[in-house]
């Protein structure tokens, strides 16, 4: 894929390219349903196809990363190189249930309340 600039606005065109082994660059309906489940987002059946199309547009856009030679390149793990900061393992805060719970949709006796999880 490459970017093409049109007059006044941007557009892009897709170019197929032989990239060798790579993950699937498009997802099917079953995969969209599985991703939605993993992401804990309810998606209605009739939305799956449209959503799949949008996800595929993004996957197709990122496909060009396959052409970069990353052999021997370390992945970025720290944006600014710095030693990991440490602090003493002591209690610095707490005993403030009221503030912690103030925005809870449902709470009871200083607990968050959720639907039954264990039968």
């Amino acid at each position: 894929m490459r970017w093409v600039f049109g007059p006044g606005r941007l557009c892009y065109e897709r170019r197929s390219r032989n990239l060798g082994p790579k993950p699937p660059m498009s997802v099917d309906i079953a995969t969209v349903r599985r991703i939605a489940r993993l992401a804990r987002i309810a998606v209605a059946d009739e939305e799956l196809e449209h959503l799949g199309g949008e996800i595929n547009a993004v996957l197709s856009f990122v496909e060009q990363l396959g052409e970069v030679d990353v052999a021997g390149v370390e992945p970025m793990t720290s944006v600014m190189p710095m030693a990991m900061k440490k602090r003493h393992d002591v209690v610095t805060d707490g005993e403030d249930a009221d503030r912690v719970l103030r925005n809870a949709p449902v709470s009871e006796n200083n607990f968050f309340v959720v639907p039954r999880v264990v039968e």
Partner: peptide, 13 residues
């Protein structure tokens, strides 16, 4: 590896 790790390597570049 194919997506996130590769993207973070590209980021290093």
């Amino acid at each position: 590896d194919a997506y996130y790790l590769r993207a973070q390597k590209v980021r290093t570049l």
